[in-house]
Amino acid sequence: MPKLLEVENLRTQFHTTEGTVKAVDGITYDVSEGETVAIVGESGCGKSVGAMSILRLIPHPPGEILEGSRILFGGKDLLAMGDEEIRHVRGGRISMVFQEPMTSLNPVLTIGLQLTETMMLHLGLGQPEADRRAVELLGMVGIGEPERRLKQYPHHFSGGMRQRVMIALALSCNPRLIIADEPTTALDVTIQAQILELMRNLTKQMGVALIVITHNLGVVARYAERVIVMYAGKIVESGTADQIYHNPRHPYTIGLLNSVPRMDLRQGGKRLVPIEGQPPDLTRLDGGCSYRPRCRWAVEACARSIPALEAVGDGQIAACFRAGERALDLEREFDLDEASGA
């Protein structure tokens, strides 16, 4: 598959009174045509800022995407584009689905107007043609009586229905890439399943690539082909979903998997193994591995330099000096292979 998006050494910082926050600190990854990639990590790890940087939605000031960062989309650098040019990419070739559908839809405009406006702008459609397509889109995302619903306002819709509208909006201009930032975090679990199923089917059907940003490791396991794990502004590990869940090589990935209770396994009074401590203050990062203070595997070398991402398997990379040691496997709490065989 040809590369659709290539992010190279992306660095995004925020200049605050407390100091400079290195929200995204040199991340490199790519997304192929039609692929589903998940970016996982906890609050403040830079997963959302990294995604917003792709569409240059970082407020400046205080935010700044540093020189030397490159984001190639279909071979063109999004960061080098003029304002007019990037505006055609936003909502056109690349669209976004946000977490909170109430705040990302305009409350004083009808759903129909919001859908047709986008299509008239990006696709150059006339009103009748845009109206026809809006009806079709709402039908596609499973909203009944689309003609009537188009005349309604966002507050007439439930949370799940609003997220369906957001997906219709994201698909309206035939994008090549959809970035979904915590698309189901605000939704109930049965509605979450509906929405994720819908997104998966529609993106597969239309061959659209999808970046899902989430903290939910279950969602990742169900939907993603490839997984990128972030911690304190950096990618610490990436690989196929199977590699990340069954052969994690970075202590943070292992710690994250150990922290999540498993609904499908009998608990039998077993305790969770959390990651001790807190994520670091991003204004006070030193020259060592930022996971070091919480890492049970940290050695002296971890304080001296930041480990680079290195290959640890077929297409799997991890940023840890000790990623190659088999002893790390003993850290895993659930015997995953046994669990999935059962």
């Binding site: 049965t190 979450q192 396991a221 199977d242 998997l257 999540v260 609904m263 499908d264 999935s340």
Partner: peptide, 10 residues
Amino acid sequence: AVPIPDPRVE
């Protein structure tokens, strides 16, 4: 509806 954090189980 609850996804299990294990792609093989899923």
